[in-house]
Nucleic acid binder design. Structure first.
Length: 108
DNA sequence: GACTTGACTAGAC
DNA sequence: AGTCTAGCCAAGT
């Protein structure tokens, strides 16, 4: 399937996304578009979301939010709640359901 | 290999 | 502040 899609690095885009997100430290967050840009594909933010949709358990997916600092909508509402709880447990301040990207963004 | 899907985003009202 | 739209592109069928 499309899983065979490869890039120069020899990794699927998804694998590259997981590898990068695993480096995001506790208490920090990144945006989908930011991850895409850091991987050299600034217009693949949506693909990053697609990768996060099915990710290994060792990937801190809760540290990825959208460009507005909000938790993106998805099929299973439960994971949205889990994401908010995990972020709060890590000390990420949420103001009116939003993360302050100017304070918590991980620049890599 | 074509068609669809979506945890996106920037811009326009 | 919010809502809508078009463009985006990897992954899934």
């Amino acid at each position: 399937m499309g899983a065979g899609t490869r890039r120069a690095g020899g990794l699927t885009f998804r694998a590259a996304v997981y590898r990068l997100v695993r480096r995001v430290p506790r208490g920090a967050v990144v945006t989908y578009g930011q991850v895409a840009s850091m991987l050299g594909a600034p217009r693949s933010a949506r693909a990053v979301g697609g990768a996060m949709r099915r990710c290994p358990d060792d990937v801190p997916w809760h540290r990825v939010v959208n460009a507005a600092g909000k938790i993106s909508r998805r099929r299973h509402m439960g994971s949205m709640l889990t994401q908010r709880i995990r972020l709060e447990q890590e000390g990420v301040p949420l103001r009116r359901g939003r993360v302050r990207l100017d304070r918590c963004r991980w620049e890599g």
